[in-house]
């Protein structure tokens, strides 16, 4: 009895675990994801992706996934921008697409989110003025490249 169960456990779990390690659809888990032409944060942007978008990924290489967009565009996304779990309730995030349980899909996108912040703002509990100002301090890739060039910082792994 025990042996049978253990054999079945191995037979079922090993393919699942191995399967997870290989190429699969993944969800974008950042708000404004930039698909790069090369596996580099300073690479040219070939496409943009939104939070919750599902992209087809290949095998990860030094932290970068080769991705294919639904329209066929190819590029690279850093692993920190991607999740194996669905992250938002959206059309297209189904069990079939992502190979995960419907419970996870139902949980995705809920919790500590915009709705909670909106409640705190409405109650006047927290002042977000400076937090919003910080969000606007965005620095572009060109600016970073120029800053590094001027500062004699050519050395780097990018």
């Amino acid at each position: 009895m025990k042996t049978k169960v253990l054999a079945m456990l191995v037979a079922i779990t090993v393919p699942i675990c191995v399967g997870i390690a290989f190429a699969a659809p993944m969800s974008v888990q950042v708000r404004n994801g930039k698909v790069r032409a090369t596996p580099s944060q300073l690479g040219k942007t070939v496409a943009t992706v939104d939070y919750g978008d599902v992209v087809e990924t290949g095998a990860v290489q030094s932290g970068w996934y080769p991705v294919t967009m639904p329209d066929g565009t190819k590029g690279w996304l850093h692993e920190s921008a991607l999740s194996k779990k669905p992250v938002a309730m959206r059309a297209g995030t189904s069990d079939v697409d992502t190979g995960v349980s419907s419970d996870e899909v139902a949980l995705a996108g809920k919790g500590f989110n915009e709705q909670v912040e909106a409640k705190l703002r409405a109650e006047g509990t927290l002042d977000y003025t400076w937090v919003d100002r910080m969000a606007a301090f965005e620095v572009g890739v060109e600016q970073i490249v120029e800053f590094r060039r001027q500062g004699n910082l050519p050395g780097g792994a990018l």
Binding site: Q41, S80, W130, M134, Q143, I144, G156
Partner: peptide
Amino acid sequence: LNVLGQSLAVFSERPETFGGYRFL
């Protein structure tokens, strides 16, 4: 501070967060 900080963050092991790195 933001140009310096964000130019470092792109080299971090986690260059992407949901809203990005910001400094103040």
